[in-house]
């Protein structure tokens, strides 16, 4: 992105200055920042180790010693939620980064070169639309074997089609612009046209979709964790915690409700913040205002 610092500064100001969406965006951005901070400094912030069992204190409700209560093995739920933030956020972010990078690469090549290569590749990519994301991810994890790496790959593949489609459409539309023809007339090669003219103009919406998809990816990771296909015990992830706690739903509901609350909060934060960024970074919007 060749946004100048000045424009980015102006965008940030506009983000804060807007009366309603602006404040919401700022609060959600701050909330997201707090989650990331907690994930980064988990060992310093967690009051107990995430796998420390205390069989004398099984299924206790929230109290002064255990703010979020204890689970079926007497482990501190707060500590597990703090460590779980690491897994949930990093799996979500890594998977989306991987998916977006691959999607941008494939989509740009398909959109730019077109022809038979485009049709065959897109047909293969479109096959993944046929399955619901959760089913596709479950099948992939089942093939690759449960674990964090396969979870990341499965989530990346599940969202690959939307990034590829979006980039391809953007690049195809931009390919017809006069400035691309000008560049070709000057003697530019494919790499120059793609990297200098097409991608910088195509990426803004892709980045926004990547932000919004991160929320879905965290949810998908939680779902895979709930089915026991994600992080393996005793490693905590929010989804896995809800899964193992579901047996105690009526005795100790906090074991399920609290990780679920954090999944919901992070999805909300990411979506609202992504919307605010969409409004602030919209190229057309910027041109209209300038």
């Amino acid at each position: 992105m060749s946004l100048s610092l000045k424009t980015q500064g102006a965008a940030t100001l506009r983000l804060l200055g807007k009366p309603f969406g602006g404040i919401g965006g700022a609060i959600c951005g701050a909330g997201l920042g707090l989650f990331i901070f907690v994930a980064l400094f988990a060992p310093l912030l967690a009051p107990y180790a995430y796998d420390a069992q205390d069989l004398a204190r099984i299924g206790l409700p929230p109290s002064a010693e255990n703010w979020f209560g204890t689970d079926e093995f007497g482990r501190d739920v707060l500590s597990r939620v703090i460590y779980g933030a690491r897994i949930s956020l990093s799996v979500g972010l890594t998977a989306v980064a991987l998916s977006a990078s691959a999607g941008i690469l494939i989509g740009a090549l398909c959109g730019y070169f077109g022809g038979r290569f485009d049709r065959i590749t897109m047909a293969a990519i479109d096959l993944t639309w046929c399955f619901p994301e959760i089913l596709l991810a479950l099948v992939l994890v089942a093939i690759l074997g449960p674990g964090l790496n396969s979870t990341v790959i499965a989530i990346a593949v599940a969202y690959l089609a939307q990034f590829t489609r979006l980039t391809r459409t953007q690049v195809r539309a931009l390919k017809g612009e006069t400035f691309v023809e000008v560049s070709r007339c000057l003697g530019a090669g494919h790499a120059h046209i793609l990297l200098r003219h097409l991608l910088p103009n195509a990426l803004a919406p892709v980045i926004v979709v990547a932000m919004l998809t991160t929320g879905d990816a965290i949810l998908l990771e939680a779902t895979l964790g709930f089915f026991g296909m994600g992080a393996q015990p005793p490693t905590p992830s929010w989804g896995a915690m809800m899964s193992s706690g579901s047996a105690q739903l009526f005795n100790a509901p906090w074991v399920v409700i609290i990780p679920g609350l954090f999944v919901a909060l992070s999805v909300i934060f990411i979506n609202v913040y992504g919307d605010a960024i969409l409004a602030a970074l919209d190229v057309k919007n910027r041109i209209r205002r300038a």
Binding site: E177, T178, F179, E181, V182, C185, L186, G187, R196, H197, P200, N201, V283, I287
Partner: peptide, 17 residues
């Protein structure tokens, strides 16, 4: 190509925004 150049009809889209 440097020896033959072209000026295009639409000046509005002829420069990368």
């Amino acid at each position: 190509r440097r020896r033959f150049q072209m000026v295009f009809q639409d000046p509005y889209s002829s420069i990368n925004p």
